[in-house]
Write a protein that binds this DNA or RNA. Sequence first.
DNA 1: AGCATGACGAACA
DNA 2: GTGTTCGCCATGC
Length: 117
Amino acid sequence: MATIKLSEKNKDFFENVYAVVREIPEGRVTSYGAIAAFLGAKRSSRMVGWAMHGAGSMPEVPAHRVVNRNGYLTGKGHFNDPDEMELKLKAEGIQVTDDRVVDFNVVFWDPATALSL
DNA sequence: AGCATGACGAACA
DNA sequence: GTGTTCGCCATGC
């Protein structure tokens, strides 16, 4: 169990990330960079990934819908079960081949376009 | 306090 | 188009 100590400052960033991820509709995916950019920290895509790491304790955060800009399921190994990510995506109608989202450009969901600040 | 790492991304060769 | 390097910034040792 990872004891996540959320400092007030980080809490804000983490919650922003979670809020965006929660808005990802089923059958769609987005990228760490897109979320980071939407939050105004486009160069901190790594922090988004770190936020997802904490999201493991956040059941309501569909982290499986977040992949890298290449459409690869880079974070699959961080789930409880590595296959869980691919499985969930397929269950939502997203085709996954060789750990990569098929038609990534089509199912891609851009928070900057779908959401408003 | 300093060094190494990381669910990434963009730039460069 | 592929491979390598740097930047980003929080976390862990």
